[in-house]
Design a protein around this nucleic acid. Structure first.
Lengths: 267, 267
DNA sequence: CTTGACTCTCCCCCAGGGGGAGACCGCCAC
DNA sequence: GTGGCGGTCTCCCCCTGGGGGAGAGTCAAG
């Protein structure tokens, strides 16, 4: 018999929807109990209501919002196509999945970089000769001092926003150390298709370098540079410009050791 | 100079974070403006604050909650490993992505079924001979009448809940039509590993049938069954039992045309 | 009749902000 | 000085999808 009535708690147990949720769905007009006692306001549900509640739960578990569920149920009720609403939902969910997947990939990249940075901290890689690949960067060249980094990089980050695709670095266009009038280029690698506005974009060619990862405060890099120069000298190679300092650790604002990769090109 | 101060609107323009969001992050202790005018309560941010805001935005865009961001920033501030928090976030995001992906797949299945049902509605497939595959079902056998469906199926759906893997159907164990004492088995296909409790589970073997999709109210299937019997008779085959009626359209509660697939086995 | 399990309504809470009201503030032009 | 305009302040309510609990009323079994 369909006259059999279920109280809200039983319906909750049967459908797995919470009592709170059932009351909410009534308030939203999604699932009206077949009978509400006018004096006690107790809700009573029929088998048919329970079937509807099951449908509702299935749709909710699929990730539909209550509004979307309302649309689907309305289409169902008219015996209409259903595909319209569901196709929209599918598109939304697919976008969500893709977005989460992209985030996971980005996090993986971040974690790998981080792991490598930590490895460098524990066991700095020895002086190494390798090729730096070509890279497209947003570049700001100016005369000044190292400490300008705290001014220039925030500005670059501000303009390039979401187009950034790697650790920022600095090019030193003269080999001699200058305290306060160095010829510097502040660079941020860009994502392949990105074209930020209000900033100079340049493609740096690949270059052969001797590299060294320096850990410690950024004003103590002098001896490490000296090691690189000495190395090239010992091999009778001619150092070239620009020198490159790459800032490896993210969030360099706080404490913790900083990591700087020094790269000295030769001809 | 790092003494340069930015008002909240400028910071918003630079970082892409809304003014509301910036105020919220201050309230949550994530991003404190370097100076707050004690008399006007205006917020002023330094370049360093803006860098932090960028980090914050990047993390938010990755899908981290503010609490997770707080954790990451704290680790960053101590120069700690970072990997702990980020690995947790990665796990969460991966789960989200997988879940959304599962939903998309489920929706695709649903949409395919729906599309086929609609195709059947427009152009009912002719009488067809084929094999019904073996299927594991939750089964409730009882004597009664067709209209018991509205009682039995909700109960089955209630007990089997999320284990359901297909359209429900009904087996008629006798070939003759009986109004009120038919020998019926109400069935719901189950997902492969599912073992619902409080219900009889059975594996139906595959069987060769003549099938026909009937569209219209469920009490008008008589002539369609007659067509199937006539077909087998013309081919001099012996009809067998059980007959099977599968209810194709979801949400059969509301209006709209119903679709029932009739399947008549033979020996 | 009592008792324990249910159920009712009503209110506050969460994240992550959006929208807007009403009141100040800063800066530029005149 | 003074007006005007845009920026900023605090404060409050709104959204989704419910959870937690208070205080009061109800149902059914013993």
């Amino acid at each position: 018999m369909s006259g059999l009535l279920y109280a809200i708690g039983e319906v909750s147990r049967i459908t797995g929807l919470s009592v709170k949720a059932l009351r909410l769905y009534q308030e939203k007009g999604l699932l009206e109990p077949s009978r509400v006692d006018p004096s006690t306001h107790y809700r009573y549900y029929t088998e048919r209501d329970i079937t509807l509640a099951h449908t509702l739960r299935a749709l909710r578990d699929l990730g539909l919002s209550l509004e979307e569920i309302r649309g689907v149920l309305a289409e169902l009720d008219q015996g209409a196509s259903l595909t319209e609403q569901l196709a929209r939902v599918r598109a939304r969910l697919a976008e969500e999945a893709a977005s989460a997947q992209r985030s996971v990939l980005a996090l993986d990249t971040l974690l790998r970089n981080q792991a490598q940075a930590e490895a460098y901290l524990r066991a700095p890689p020895p002086l190494l000769e390798r090729w730096l690949p070509a890279v497209r960067v947003a570049l700001h060249r100016a005369r000044g001092r190292y400490s300008d980094a705290s001014v220039v990089f925030p500005r670059l980050l501000a303009t390039c926003g979401p187009h950034i695709a790697g650790a920022p670095f600095c090019l030193l266009h003269e080999a001699e150390y200058r305290e306060d009038d160095a010829d510097l280029s502040w660079c941020v690698p860009l994502a392949p298709g990105a074209t930020p506005e209000g900033v100079h974009v340049e493609e740096l060619p690949e270059v052969q370098v001797a590299t060294l990862v320096h850990s410690g405060p950024p004003d103590s890099v002098g001896p490490s540079w000296a090691r690189l120069f000495a190395h090239l000298h010992a091999k009778e190679r001619t150092p070239s410009v620009p020198l490159r300092e790459t800032y490896l650790r993210v969030g360099t604002t706080g404490g913790g050791s900083l990591l700087t990769e020094l790269a000295l090109p030769w001809e």
